[in-house]
Structures are given as structure tokens and as C-alpha cells.
Design a protein around this nucleic acid. Structure first.
Length: 583
DNA sequence: GCCGTTTTCGGCCCGACTGTTTTCAGTCG
């Protein structure tokens, strides 16, 4: 089992325990463990085989260590089977109904034997739910309305889509004179690849005016809640927007609190407590001897909030309780990569295959964006739907590049190819033509459902091929639409490290592949990441910003990303002899 | 279930809002 699979088992255990009203700290222990394992650089199977002490992993104690060993050895966990006997897994979707938590869901299951969303809907329509103790007519209506939301499969939207809504909301609220500061917080600010809802924070003393203004935002379908400081609305698109209005002296504390993540905040507040301080969204406060809230020591800015706790101002992208506190205590907060650090773009298509723009148009667009070098990487012949290139057409394209090069002295145009890794495991083009290329991107397009062994055989063949520079979109996942291939990413990264190959972070907002935790593993193993646009038209080059967000979440600095280098400094990283490459 | 420069037991972040309550539990972030 992979680390992620083991992590998923612990998450499932946590869900079921929560449903059974187990000790919340026990539930948290499983969730914490799941999170730590997902981001672990070494495969657990290897650690178990080596007889390593798993309790060395932060958050893993004696009990979870034993369960990990059981999962590695047998592929299943008796405890999970037992839990599923007590509570069918079909109840878990009920927890996604807004307003339904473990307590209420358990009451529905225990009192009315409701074990699925369908049964829940029927019970609401028959008016049975309102008769339960602790439920009422209003709750029943809320549940009924919420079922539709829960049934919508995982509807977190791409960060790029959230960004459009956020900008519109900010533009709508900013002109209001009563608003002194305004920020979008939450997972949007942390740059997560998908965003579940939008969190806005306003600095104002006129709460009513700000809330009224949000209510007037075009596209507000309903007001879910509105209190003294907090308001929630749902947009026509079903997206929820939470607004919090605080005074200036609390803005920093509220921004810190509202940015999260929840796990990061739990850690921050725990650390505060050890120092006799209390952190909440209103500020940082000294605690009196009786444990009462005393004098305020910080709150106006995030920086002073963290500073008052002896912590650095964490970049929002790192606030996931995935090791940032350890980095801070070692004094090494990384200087994360920024969009402006990128100098080249090494994956793009033209109308020779499935791109929309000509070679010259792509070159011009790249120059306008200040790129110092680009690789033209059209598809190879097996990708017939895209009109992939055979060796003849590919060489013809390279001749066209030869003709263009003298016209541009401010951009290096690399002769590249996105060569398909065939189902058989061979490369789609002959070795002699691949050897002539400046830059070979290898990727899978077909046979994505093959068993892991076969997928890995293909990927490992490609990564060891002398002419291949990089593996593109290595896992093949499409966010919310397609699962990754059945592959062992850890092994792929290891072999890439052994053969001095690069791995792509495809910046398309639907791909973002490799993802943040895999990029972090690549960093630890010294595998350079290349952030590429995979542009199919000129505007497609602008997606690099999303790749940079993901890279920041992985803790990558400019030094970890190969295409932050000038072309002459990138060449030594490549398998190909620098002398065979253009200047 | 995890963890320990106050602890191997007794803690484990904190507050807003709603609905169903007569003073609070549940949910959410």
C-alpha cells in the first residue's frame, strides 16, 4: 500500500469514529496521522521492511504504528472492518449535508435507521425528522435543502475559478467608504488547488453597511446567516461566501484566524497557551493567573500576532501544519518562489498539432511575457486525435525553428517534442530523432487504466531513456474529473533523482501535476521541478501563476525550480551534453 | 490516540451563529 492509501484508511477510520461520537481527540489523532503520512517523503512499506521505528514520525504513536505495519503487511485493517460492521459507510455522505454533524447524523441513524442520503430525504419529506428530540421543523427544512448540496460531487472549484469570483467581490466591496482594509482569506489565500468557499475579511466599524453591501452583490442567491460580526451567503453558483467584519485593532488576528488552516491555527493556539497567551480572532491576550483573558498584546497586523508568539510571518501557502513550525524553530523559513522568478516555459503546443496558434505567434507571445527561452513541444504521432507529429513532420518543424531563430536574439527557441510513452512501454519516436531534440518531454496519453506494474514499467523506462529530459504531468490526474494513473510516485521521483531527470509541475489549473506534497518530496530528493504552461494557445501561457502557487505550497524556492535559471545555467542540469544545445 | 524544559496522567484552540432550548448543544471554520 502507498502512503496515500494508508492515509486514506486512517481518514476513513476517523470519519466512522466521529460518527460513533468517539472521543474527539482520538478522532483528531487519526486525522493528524493521516495528514502526516500523506506527506511523508519515504514510502511506509520501505520503512516497515527496514524495521524502522514508526513512532519517530510526529503524530504516530504505538497504536498507529502497529496499524501501519498491519496495513503494509496485510493490505487491510481489522479495526476498519469492525467499524464498518457497526456503522455502514453509506452514512458518511450524510456528514456532508450542511448543518448535519456527527451528533445529529448519529441520532438519525440510531433513532430512525437512516443510513443514506436517499433515506434521509424520504424521512424529511414524511416529516419524521422534525419529531426527533433536538430537531425541529426548521432543521428538517435545512437538511432537505442541504441534501442537494451534499449530492453534488465534491464541488470545490479550481483556484483559478475562485480567483475570478474573489476579484469581483473585492471590486464590489472596496468602493465602500466604511471599509478600511479588505482581504480574501481561507484556502484561497493559502493557494490551495481547489477552493470550497470564499472567506472575506473587512476592517470596518460599520458592520451593517458592509453586510448590506455584500447582500447586494449580483449573484447572491440567499443569505444563510447574519450575526453581529459574521455573515454567510450562497451565490447562484452554489458557492458559499463568508464575510467577517472586525475593527482595525483586530484585523491582523482575524486575518490570521480566517486564513487558517484549521490545523495550523490549532498549533498556533496551542503554542500560545504554553506561553500563557490566548489567541483568538480578536487578538493575542495575556492570560491572568486565574486563566481569564487579560491584556491585549497584539492584533492589528498578522506580523505582530506571530511576532508576539515568537513565530515568523508564515507565508499563507505554508500554513498547513505540514512542518512549517519545525522550519520556524530551525530558523529557516524558505524564501518561496515567485512568478517573476520564472524565465522560461518548457512545454507548449502549436497548430502543427492541437494548438491554436502558429509557431511564430507562440514565440511572439512568449517574448511579450518576458520569457528568455521556450521549448516547442508538440505531440508525437501516437496522439492521433491531436494530429501528432511523425519524425518527418517533426524535423520539418525544427527546420522552421532554424529559420526563425536568426530573427530573435532575445529568446532561445528549443526544438522539443512531447513524446508519448506507448502502451507497450516504448517511446513513440525512434531514438535517433529523439537524440536530435534539444528537449524531450515524455508523457502518457493512452492505456491510463493499466495496472500499476505496467504503468510504472512505462514511466521508469521513459525516465531512464537517455534522450528524455522530463516527465510531464506525471500522475495524469485531472482535478475533480480523473484520478491519477495507478502509479508509485515516490518510486518515480527516486528514479528521476538517480538519473538526473526533471519532473514537471504542469500549471494548468485542472492538472497542477505534480501536486504540492509530491513536489515537496521531489525537493527533498533533489529532483528539480519545471513549472510549465502546456499552453495550447497564446493566453495559455498565463497559467504559470497557478503552478507557482502550488510550488509555494510545496515550500519550493527559486533554486528548486529549474526554469528560474537562465538558459545557460539550466543546460548543465540536462542529460544532454551542453555542447549539443543552442546558446 | 498522542504527548511531555511544569506532566507517563491529564491535558488536547477558540469563538460565532442557529435552532430548539428556557440555559445550551451542535455545527462550523
Amino acid at each position: 500500500m502507498t502512503n496515500r492509501e494508508i492515509s486514506a484508511v486512517f481518514d476513513q477510520v476517523a470519519d466512522l469514529l466521529e460518527f460513533q461520537n468517539a472521543n474527539p481527540f482520538r478522532v483528531r489523532a487519526y486525522r493528524n496521522g493521516a495528514r502526516k503520512l500523506k506527506d511523508l517523503p519515504q514510502p511506509l512499506s520501505q520503512l516497515v521492511a527496514d524495521g524502522a521505528d514508526l513512532t519517530d514520525i510526529d503524530g504516530i504513536g504505538k497504536d498507529l504504528a502497529e496499524k501501519i505495519a498491519t496495513l503494509v503487511r496485510t493490505g487491510s485493517l481489522p479495526m476498519l472492518a469492525e467499524l464498518e460492521q457497526q456503522v455502514p459507510a453509506s452514512v458518511l455522505p450524510m456528514l456532508r449535508v450542511p448543518g448535519l454533524g456527527p451528533k445529529k447524523a448519529a441520532a438519525l441513524y440510531n433513532e430512525l435507521s437512516i443510513a443514506s442520503l436517499d433515506m434521509l430525504r424520504a424521512a424529511c419529506e414524511e416529516g419524521k425528522v422534525r419529531e426527533l428530540k433536538g430537531f425541529g421543523k426548521k432543521t428538517e427544512e435545512t437538511i432537505l435543502a442541504g441534501i442537494a448540496l451534499a449530492e453534488r460531487a465534491n464541488d470545490r472549484i479550481y483556484w483559478a475559478a475562485a480567483d475570478e469570483v474573489v476579484q469581483a467581490l473585492l471590486d464590489h466591496l472596496r468602493p465602500l467608504g466604511q471599509v478600511k482594509q479588505l482581504e480574501a482569506a481561507g484556502s484561497y489565500r493559502r493557494g490551495k488547488e481547489t477552493v470550497g468557499d470564499i472567506d472575506l475579511l473587512a476592517d470596518s466599524t460599520d458592520v451593517g453597511a458592509v453586510m448590506d453591501r455584500l447582500g447586494e452583490f449580483p449573484g447572491v442567491a440567499e443569505v444563510i446567516a447574519r450575526g453581529d460580526t459574521k455573515m454567510s451567503v450562497r451565490l447562484d453558483s452554489q458557492l458559499q461566501v463568508d464575510l467577517r467584519v472586525v475593527p482595525s485593532e483586530s484585523f491582523g488576528a482575524a486575518l490570521q484566524y480566517f486564513t487558517g488552516s484549521k490545523e495550523h491555527n490549532v498549533e498556533v493556539r496551542g503554542l500560545a497557551k504554553q506561553q500563557g497567551l490566548r489567541v483568538n480572532e480578536w487578538g493575542v491576550f495575556r492570560l491572568t493567573e486565574e486563566g481569564e483573558q487579560g491584556e491585549r498584546v497584539a492584533g492589528a497586523t498578522e506580523e505582530e500576532v506571530y511576532q508576539s508568539l515568537g513565530l515568523p510571518l508564515f507565508p499563507p501557502e505554508l500554513r498547513e501544519a505540514r512542518g512549517e513550525f519545525e522550519l520556524a524553530s530551525e530558523g529557516g523559513m524558505p524564501d518561496l518562489i515567485e512568478l517573476a522568478d520564472l524565465r522560461g516555459d518548457l512545454h507548449m503546443h502549436t497548430n502543427a498539432t492541437d494548438g491554436k496558434a502558429t509557431l511564430r505567434e507562440m514565440v511572439e507571445a512568449a517574448r511579450q511575457r518576458g520569457r528568455e527561452y521556450i521549448a516547442i513541444t508538440d505531440h508525437s504521432k501516437r496522439v492521433s486525435m491531436a494530429g501528432g507529429l511523425d519524425s518527418g513532420r517533426l524535423r520539418a518543424q525544427w527546420e522552421e525553428i532554424d529559420r526563425l531563430r536568426p530573427e530573435y536574439d532575445d529568446i532561445v527557441i528549443l526544438k522539443g517534442i512531447e513524446c508519448d510513452i506507448l502502451e507497450s512501454g516504448e517511446m513513440d519516436l525512434d531514438d535517433d530523432v529523439l537524440a536530435e531534440a534539444d528537449w524531450v518531454v515524455a508523457s502518457l496519453h493512452y492505456g491510463q487504466k493499466q495496472p500499476r506494474e505496467k504503468i510504472m514499467q512505462r514511466l521508469l523506462f521513459a525516465v531512464q531513456h537517455p534522450s528524455v529530459s522530463i516527465i510531464a504531468h506525471p500522475t495524469g490526474r485531472l482535478i475533480n474529473r480523473r484520478e491519477p494513473y495507478d502509479l508509485d510516485v515516490d518510486q518515480l521521483i527516486e528514479v528521476a533523482a538517480q538519473h538526473n531527470k526533471l519532473l514537471e509541475l504542469n500549471a494548468n489549473p485542472a492538472r497542477l501535476d505534480l501536486d504540492d506534497s509530491h513536489c515537496a518530496i521531489a525537493k527533498r530528493l533533489g529532483v528539480p521541478i519545471v513549472i510549465s504552461s502546456d499552453a495550447h494557445h497564446t493566453e495559455g501561457m498565463d497559467v504559470l501563476q497557478y503552478g507557482v502557487k502550488q510550488a509555494r505550497r510545496a515550500g519550493l524556492t527559486a533554486a528548486d525550480v529549474a526554469n528560474t535559471r537562465a538558459w545557460r545555467d539550466l543546460k548543465p542540469l540536462l542529460a544532454k551534453q551542453a555542447a549539443d544545445l543552442p546558446d
